[in-house]
């Protein structure tokens, strides 16, 4: 195809698209998959960790109680305060993930709104010199 300005070679004397010959924008970090998995953990965490009462397994603890915990065959005894601290820690993590998720969605919406405005302005500007299409 003969174009008036010499066509679009990948690299011209005047401009360069990229060293790899592509319009490479960013490296995506698989954010969508990570987001869905984060929401799964967040949802599970919010359901599982009710901190209104301190529980050892499924039983409510009194401040004088201790809790026997077994992990990978190793048992250890936790005080009421240690169990409570652990539950609060999980709640903080859950809240942090929740706030980060809401912030991320908000940032995305702001960017999408800006992009939409720019797109409409650009389309109107192009329309001024292009006029109506042929058919």
């Amino acid at each position: 195809m003969a174009l008036g300005w010499g066509g679009f070679d990948r690299v011209s004397e005047f401009w360069t698209l990229d060293t790899n010959g592509d319009i490479v924008l960013i490296e995506q970090k698989n954010a969508i998959g990570a987001g869905i998995l984060a929401l799964m953990f967040l949802g599970g965490g919010l359901f599982a960790f009710d901190t209104s009462t301190v529980k050892c397994g499924s039983e409510a603890m009194a401040p004088t109680d201790t809790c026997q915990e077994t992990k990978k065959g190793v048992s250890r005894t936790l005080t009421y305060q240690e169990v409570k601290d652990s539950q609060v820690r999980w709640k903080v993590i859950s809240l942090g993930l929740g706030v980060a998720s809401v912030g991320g969605v908000g940032w995305y919406l702001v960017q999408a709104g800006r992009r939409r405005r720019e797109e409409q302005e650009s389309a109107a500007s192009v329309g001024l010199f292009m006029g109506p299409p042929t058919t």
């Binding site: 319009i23 490479v24 389309a123």
Partner: peptide
């Protein structure tokens, strides 16, 4: 679609990597 009916084209080309492993280009 006619070329002269197009007002704007936004392009996005992203190289996808997971843990440094290239998973292609979107």
């Amino acid at each position: 679609y006619r070329w002269d009916a197009i007002r704007t084209v936004y392009q996005s080309v992203e190289k996808i990597r997971a843990k440094g492993l290239p998973l292609g280009t979107r």
